[in-house]
Design a protein around this nucleic acid. Structure first.
Lengths: 166, 166
DNA sequence: GAGCACGTACTCGGATAGGTGTTGTCCGAGTGATGCCGG
DNA sequence: CCGGCATCACTCGGACAACACCTATCCGAGTACGTGCTC
């Protein structure tokens, strides 16, 4: 279990393959899933969400697939997370403070004015977390991968995708 | 929906009432729930978890209840969150990078060495979030409440709890 | 009047259902490529 | 040999189940308090 679902991880790994593409190149969700040992049906579902979020563009028909909707350096990890999780907050304040039995249904103004103290702390924590995710783009992540993986592997991946198009 | 369950909110609101207590004073989960319009059964369950996490001490029998296990300034929001959510991480890395089909089941060392780039970003975001939650103690939160609530209200709460003990 | 035993009411504690979200699967709609047929 | 058309394979897209977790509830175990009895 984790706060962010595993769909985030799967989507990010798939998206990294889309970073170094020519404008005409597309990758089918099926190929992306199979290359990484993921469920093709589920990856397809995830890419539908990414498309609705405006992060990728879908090209239909034979030989079609997905490509990034904009430059990889303009797509942050936060964009991906929010696109999949619907921008859900770290903490949802239900204003418990309003329901104190002593108020008898009509809370005084001092109890409802401003932000709940607990909520304020959570918002700050969330904001810092989101800031970090926002500062890291897909291009940054891909750069990290490129630094690790040998050139031969990158070429092999390209070949593999091309062989799939035939 | 939110990343943190509403149990966190309920528990924190309840715990704030335990901050200004004398060492002999205890609060039953039933009273704490009723005062705030929460489900008594569920709050009882939450306090069981808080007790297992070592944050509160249970006193059994008539007139018993809960009290903080240590000073309110030594209990952080993070302690409460982790006690309830079991310290679940922001992101669970399943090492998708190991499963690339091109590796045929035996990933090379460069693919498994070090931290997954995605995981690294998530860990940093998580660490910043947790740091914020760690910096805020129950005492800090209670201080914020005291600054808002009028003295009369605080006294009224005390009276309400005492009337429950008779 | 004092001490003791008992009953009671209140507390915690864990085992037990219902609702919701995530994960995973399946089949249908649409589209571009391909091969075939006719000119 | 060339152009048009039907077929087909591949892609996206949304509707459909299985599973797990969160929320909520209920009942049982244990304990301190209060009461009544006995000495």
């Amino acid at each position: 279990m984790a706060l962010y679902a595993s769909s985030v991880e799967q989507a990010l790994h798939c998206l990294l393959f889309l970073v170094d593409m020519t404008p005409e190149q597309t990758f089918s969700s099926n190929d992306l899933a199979e290359l990484q040992g993921l469920s093709p049906s589920y990856v397809a579902k995830l890419f539908t969400q990414l498309k609705n979020a405006g992060l990728v563009i879908a090209v239909e028909g034979v030989g079609g697939g997905y490509q990034l909707a904009r430059s990889a350096k303009d797509i942050s990890v936060l964009d991906v997370v929010d696109g999949l999780e619907g921008g859900k907050p770290l903490f949802r304040c239900r204003d418990i403070r309003r329901n104190c039995a002593l108020f008898r249904g009509s809370p005084p103004s001092w109890a409802t004015r401003g932000l709940c103290s607990i909520h304020a702390v959570m918002l700050e924590a969330e904001q810092r977390m989101r800031q970090t995710l926002k500062e890291n783009s897909l291009a940054d992540l891909a750069q990290g991968v490129r630094r690790k993986a040998p050139q031969a592997y990158m070429a092999e991946v390209t070949t593999w995708f091309q062989s799939r198009k035939t």
